[in-house]
Design a protein around this nucleic acid. Sequence first.
DNA 1: GTCGGTCGGTACGAAAGGGTCCGGACGCGC
DNA 2: GCGCGTCCGGACCCTTTCGTACCGACCGAC
Lengths: 236, 236
Amino acid sequence: MNSPDMGPRNRLLAALSPRDLRRLSSSLEPTSLEARQVLDGPHDSIKHAYFVESGLISVVGTAEPDHRIEVGMVGREGMTGLGIVLGDDRSANATIVQSAGTALRISSAALREAMKVHPAFAAILLRYVNVFIAQASQTALANGRGRLDERLARWLLMWHDRLGDADLIITHEFLALLLGVRRPGVTVALHDLEGRGLIRANRSLVRIIDRDGLQLAANGFYGIPEAEYDRSIGLN
Amino acid sequence: MNSPDMGPRNRLLAALSPRDLRRLSSSLEPTSLEARQVLDGPHDSIKHAYFVESGLISVVGTAEPDHRIEVGMVGREGMTGLGIVLGDDRSANATIVQSAGTALRISSAALREAMKVHPAFAAILLRYVNVFIAQASQTALANGRGRLDERLARWLLMWHDRLGDADLIITHEFLALLLGVRRPGVTVALHDLEGRGLIRANRSLVRIIDRDGLQLAANGFYGIPEAEYDRSIGLN
DNA sequence: GTCGGTCGGTACGAAAGGGTCCGGACGCGC
DNA sequence: GCGCGTCCGGACCCTTTCGTACCGACCGAC
């Protein structure tokens, strides 16, 4: 996985004891994540859980084919495959790679087994599930109550957190899909944020200029799941 | 709890083996749920989990004081206190009684202990968490993509499922709060549904007339978490 | 029966956002 | 350096929803 002198880049795995981690590592298979790759469709049987090391994965809620929206985001602080953690092998949501990167993946069976053998590991994953619920809840809140520019600010901050890069490679089109709005609406909202000096936008690129300003622009819709994560799983 | 010849009315408890249930029953304390009672505020330490027997509880996502919206609903098919199930003692969401009823409650410590001693019990609760994630995800989807009348239809159906009564006692004001919209908007949307012959509305009362029609009106935003529940936890 | 509070119906202008189209700009491949 | 596909900017008009306000209807208390 990583060079032996550094811990794993995934923050859930990093929270494990070195001993548990060593025993687990044989089940963890390094994988590359390609942009737009679909890890699990809705209602698919989940074959692997992914511990993200770099890049970013979207959890997308789906009903009818054209009713889709992002409900959560997973970077190196998290994992996919919560259904497995919860003893089921499927979920109503899809998981789709949004920004290419790498992950350590583990088969469903091995994950179940590992949770049985390492209760501390299971405990960490369950606490992450709780944080994920907070994330989905806040998304529901933002979707219901927030204006487009506020939701956009929230989204940019969350992306920034998880990728740790001020330059986000994304098209307006894709952003519109994730936010569940019209594409030109995203263009206008980005201009608005740009006019306020919070970002710079260019073809397929958004650069974060003023993170604190973006937090203000998000008008309270950003931050709660992130604080929950730090409280519950820790800053490591 | 209930007379010995019938199982518990809560469907999660009903899924337990009679033996596990008997051993658990001493920890379960019958409680009445009063309308508008706040079981847990956001970020409170959760003292008890509630297995609902009748009535209905809302899970409300909160950020700023005036940023609130319902993200999930719990009736006798479910429970509150998912944070405890997940090994944490708090959640970013509030739980509020929406329709009076009764519940069996269990202290956090006893619930943790029971999950340790009865793995089958723990497994059921974790599968319920997975269903709840589906519910919150679909709420995020409906809030982002659905029109007011579609969301209203979804909401009425979910309420109807969980209470099993065609007459719903609720004011437009309160509905507006839960849906995160303006009160007169609810009035108009209810008239619309009424004009289509799907409901009858009166002061503080909504009667479901045509459930199938409401499902059509919900335009695909209703049903996924309910199907997940039946698949994962079973029809009992 | 009257009073006061809650609840519902309605109406207005204003804002946000959707649907659609078009044209220009950029950038990669050849 | 040409061409084509992708991406962005802007425009049009329309629907949905908001904000606010006002008033009438209902209901329980006295």
